[in-house]
């Protein structure tokens, strides 16, 4: 079985084990190692990528489920070396401690803000990625900063 999908704006063909989780394809074959392994069961979110603009945990998504879909990883978030507003906010609030979960955190937040640029309590409680260093307070500040930026930029 061949799987045809888009990875960071490029068409890919995959002929390998169709049961392989996307995470291991990204890390071992596409050599996109910004997507991290944390739990393997979709519980921690370190491996979060976007599939058709939705945040998805790539450790539980099999390659065969990718047919015709578009995958975006952290490596594609900055375009032409210009950081995404959320990435910029993460730097400005100096969120990262060990930093291992942060790519996944950022991907989750970007997906949330792309579907709702004015997130409320409900959206925030949908952010369930684990940060073992406990950077949540600065994360909240960074999200608030990004929200302000986005709404300024869009003139709202």
């Amino acid at each position: 079985m061949k799987v045809k999908f888009i990875l960071n704006n490029k068409v890919q063909q995959y002929n390998g084990d169709e049961e392989m989780p996307l995470l291991w394809y990204l890390r071992d074959y596409a050599k996109l190692r910004g997507t991290k392994y944390g739990c393997g069961i979709g519980a921690c979110g370190a491996c979060t990528v976007h599939i058709d603009k939705r945040a998805v945990r790539s450790c539980t998504l099999k390659m065969k489920q990718l047919e015709g879909r578009a995958v975006r990883t952290i490596e594609d978030l900055a375009t032409n070396n210009i950081l995404h507003i959320v990435q910029r906010a993460w730097i400005d609030e100096d969120v990262a401690q060990c930093g291992y979960c942060q790519a996944g955190q950022i991907m989750s937040v970007v997906a949330m803000l792309e579907s709702n640029p004015r997130p409320g309590q409900r959206e925030f409680s949908g952010l369930t990625n684990i940060c073992r260093c406990g950077t949540y307070p600065r994360m909240r500040k960074a999200i608030e900063r990004a929200v302000r930026q986005i709404n300024l930029t869009s003139g709202l």
């Binding site: 990435q87 100096d94 990262a96």
Partner: peptide
């Protein structure tokens, strides 16, 4: 002072 690897971390470029 800002975390030394902050800019690399947010683009997933840091090698752990």
């Amino acid at each position: 002072t800002q975390t030394a690897d902050a800019s690399e971390i947010v683009v997933g470029a840091t090698v752990y």
